[in-house]
Write a protein that binds this DNA or RNA. Sequence first.
DNA 1: TTTTACTTGACAAAGATTAGACAATCATAT
DNA 2: ATATGATTGTCTAATCTTTGTCAAGTAAAA
Lengths: 310, 310
Amino acid sequence: MENQITYPIKAVSNLTGLSIHVIRAWEKRYNVVVPDRTDTNRRVYSIEDVEKLKLLSEASESGYSIGTIAHYNIDELKRIIGKSNVPQKSEKPASTENYLIENKDYLENCIDSIKMLNPRKLEKELYKALIDLPQPRFIEEIIAPLLEKIGDMWKDGDIRILNEHISTAIIRKILTSLIDNNSVSTNAPSILIATPKGQLHELGALIVGVIASSDGWNVTYMGPDLPGEEIAAAIEKLHPKVVALSIIYPSDDYILDKEMLKLKRLLNNGSKIIAGGRSVMTYKSTLDSMNAKIINSIDDFRLELEKSRN
Amino acid sequence: MENQITYPIKAVSNLTGLSIHVIRAWEKRYNVVVPDRTDTNRRVYSIEDVEKLKLLSEASESGYSIGTIAHYNIDELKRIIGKSNVPQKSEKPASTENYLIENKDYLENCIDSIKMLNPRKLEKELYKALIDLPQPRFIEEIIAPLLEKIGDMWKDGDIRILNEHISTAIIRKILTSLIDNNSVSTNAPSILIATPKGQLHELGALIVGVIASSDGWNVTYMGPDLPGEEIAAAIEKLHPKVVALSIIYPSDDYILDKEMLKLKRLLNNGSKIIAGGRSVMTYKSTLDSMNAKIINSIDDFRLELEKSRN
DNA sequence: TTTTACTTGACAAAGATTAGACAATCATAT
DNA sequence: ATATGATTGTCTAATCTTTGTCAAGTAAAA
């Protein structure tokens, strides 16, 4: 038989939010749960006990007095909590203003962490923001402005390459973790994301991946600096519905243009090409000639994805 | 049967954060683990012992009293800490032989996924392996051989750049997620990990980061392709106890050598430098002149970390 | 030699247990 | 309203258990 997990009173207190005193009082007065005891008389709670106490705690918090609900079983407790007409906690700000104020804090804290070379704090701050905000807002109101700010600071000499590197590593970690490869239905439309050769900075491409993933697409992310013929081969093999190209830096020597032409020659189509990034316009003619759709904003991209879906 | 890695009690103390006294007390009172002994009665811990002690340490820190969790197995411990997404795994092989058989399966499945350009399957397979194996085994028995195999296949023309890119993205995602920036005690020794300019491939550096992180170091990961003066500046600002440099590709034109010399000039010391990677030996003289320690294997690295901890 | 480990036994701080007390809150009868 | 009594969360005090830490003496490594 199984080796059941049991919980000492302190753990129960942690799990339920009830104080140790209250847990004992409820037991003494109502036998709300009757835990086993160790040889030395310590209480030993089962997972069911914890479950019941958690429900009781919730019900009690939303207005029911413990005396009246003490003898309910787990199902009844679930019912009264689910049906509870008592107004649930009203601690959601929900107003855009509040969001913005908070976002400003998050952003400032992130920037501070970057300046002070504190990747741990940066990561914590970003995670907090991620929990507080819905994913699209997180991307548009935290990540995007943060990247812009990093770019500015770098240009202005406020930070060094090393600040940029360290923070990029953290941001990349978080974005990568947001591209969900597992919970995608097998018949989801698929998108291939690549940054052509010479393009080392991949955060833009990752953002695109996160958005597509959260919109239910099947994302194959290929990383930075990929030769045109490799992109073509990937399209050939995977037949994605959409191919997204991220182009941030204009390249003086037309390497990229050559790469794009190579890519164009190798395409025998079926996939829609979407290109975006700060420097797409540099390559407009080439992109046009390969029927690529050029996008200029995150919203643009969402729209284009939606169109291409079915 | 083969060369099992073992740990003396002091190493276990460092790896788990538990004092030597506590480790012995837990063994005496609860038989929490029962290490082998040398002929002269010294304790000799296995990697699984360390894994269990680490989990116990974490659980204990988060409020569970040792007496109640002492007899839990690794899965149950993972569950109560919330580090396992598997609700209830039925049976575990747990014998070394089975481990090896399974590892072969994992590896083959991973290689298949890479050949077939199926990043989702690759990721799933790696996660399965990660749940089954203690982290050090995962690194040494899955990740390291997988990277080697990818290198071989690439040389032999069995796969293309795009296979390599796609699988690298997945492996990087997993390794990055294993570098834990949050649950590090503030007085943990700190390590800075960098790959000098011209070195684009960062998986080796990430592996180093994962190992250091799981050994309780405070990891600052700086990503690939960093100029020497930036590494120097980072050392200056962060005063890490150890700096790890990952050097994989020999560079024909001595860019790297120049970078290293720059780095050397800028160092005013206090940090120990550890360098590793396929091509470290190319730069041996330069590295020697800056008192860098050259390592040739993961075990070497672990050893060196252990020595530098104090 | 000096450092590191091992065992045993001991100790004090932290944590749990019980019984009981107390004040704030709530329902109800006056 | 107001008083009365029950309800309920919080606290103490006294007692026991659990648990981290340490010291002394011995043995092995470095």
